[in-house]
Design a protein around this nucleic acid. Structure first.
Lengths: 253, 253
DNA sequence: CCTGGACTGTGTATGTCATACACTCATCTG
DNA sequence: CAGATGAGTGTATGACATACACAGTCCAGG
């Protein structure tokens, strides 16, 4: 048993199920999954700011401190939320030489997940993926890439690039849709175009001014899946070029 | 004077200098710029979490409430921070038919700014750009794109895409560098590869396992400008294809 | 069966935070 | 010079994360 070989960042033993079930004491009335799910529901409904230990506990009918028996800190809870949301296994058959469409689906599924839970974008980065849910995605991605013959480090880099693309797309979608919901107070909310018309001095910002009078800002550019797919294809073009280059290097050197 | 035509989101009159200087009363001991700069210094030094009204005020030798004479809320202060950081005018000569290299520089400058102030990535999106600093970038970008003949709405969309790319690159850079600084407590911090060796079950995650033993995770993939530029070129390829398509549409229809 | 340890949930306390409100004092306009 | 206007402060409120000590609850071993 090489248990205590490598010290794990605290809280991860529990996550990976490396801690044995306690035999004594009362039965737990809560569960990590339940807590995380309640937090996710809160974030989906009212945004990440609504996720406080008190609110989550109240939603479950417990006191705030009860959560700390299951979760190490709020930061830990946040990373568990990300992990759970991401955990849904991508339904791809990774076998076969068709790596490009599989990789496209792999990335697109991530975009979808992120768009369903946009609060993920506000959770600060704490470190590289260390949770089972994230690991499942990486496993899937690596299997897809296995037929490319890329060196392992390149595979990892490609997955990082695509994950980053998914984040970028999700952020773009949030940006554009938030532009639509701008004025939220009264019924006569000024549109973004109206605001710019008020603020933009033609002398100082001539190019912006002409785009404003052209109405380019009046309705925010629709975020369409079509456009996003187009961008994704460009990125995959880049990956394909990398695969070919590595193949040439291998046959040459 | 069409002053009160369109109600402005409160706080923006001040930002755009639309409020006349008060004549009476004591002279201000603080300034918006000073407050914002102090907040930026704090965020650069200790991260966004260290930016509290108290800390900022203390740094300036005032009480927390004094800041509210200059800044409407903490959220407002945060958006001012973003605006200030972004304000540095991109030193591009936008005239001339060379839109592609100019646009590359335009985007790259944003990546650079974001990498210098990674806390920007944690600031929640509140809405479309409405500050003078952001407007300066947009003005510059629109000028660059003026020679493309794109319709105004497409220009706006292209700038949105590139800005989003910059955010994505910055996030990727943060991710990769944070992977390096993982174990921060004791001298014998386990590397990411060590952790994975401990956690990954070959049965459950065979592909990850082989990549781990191949050492693909032992040193995090270096974030190089070269790679990033490569990705940017793919995105610009997409823009170029859009420009050509629009040109064809214009000559055909 | 019983007892002591292990464990769960709670109550309470601390320190931080954003921000509202009422106040004092300085400064300028009339 | 007077009153208005605005700057900075002090104090208060309510939310928050979390430490600590406790009470009740369950189980293994005697």
């Amino acid at each position: 048993m090489s248990d205590v070989d490598v010290p794990l960042p605290s809280g991860y033993e529990l996550l990976w199920g490396l801690r044995e079930r306690p035999r004594r004491g009362p039965k737990p009335g809560l569960s990590v999954e339940g807590i995380v799910q309640a937090a996710i529901d809160l974030a989906d409904a009212e945004g990440l700011a609504a996720v406080s230990m008190s609110r989550v506990a109240a939603k479950l009918g417990f006191t705030p401190m009860a959560l700390y028996r299951y979760v190490e800190s709020k930061d830990h809870l946040l990373s568990l939320m990300v992990d759970t949301v991401v955990r849904a296994p991508p339904p791809i058959d990774p076998v076969g030489p068709q790596w490009r469409p599989a990789l496209e689906t792999w990335t697109w599924d991530q975009v979808t997940v992120l768009n369903q839970h946009p609060w993920i974008l506000q959770i600060p980065i704490t470190g590289p993926p260390l949770t089972p849910g994230q690991m499942r995605w990486i496993e899937q991605g690596l299997r897809i890439l296995s037929v490319t013959g890329l060196p392992e480090s390149d595979k990892v880099a490609v997955l990082g690039l695509l994950a980053s693309f998914a984040l970028s797309e999700a952020r773009l979608a949030v940006d554009l849709s938030s532009a639509a919901v701008r004025g939220d107070t009264q019924g006569t909310a000024p549109s973004y175009g109206d605001l710019l018309r008020r603020l933009i001095d033609p002398q100082r910002f001539p190019a912006v001014h002409t785009s404003v009078v052209a109405g380019a800002w009046d309705e925010p550019p629709e975020y369409t899946d079509e456009d996003a797919k187009f961008r994704l294809h460009r990125v995959l073009d880049g990956v394909e070029m990398l695969v070919e280059r590595r193949a040439r290097e291998a046959s040459a050197g």
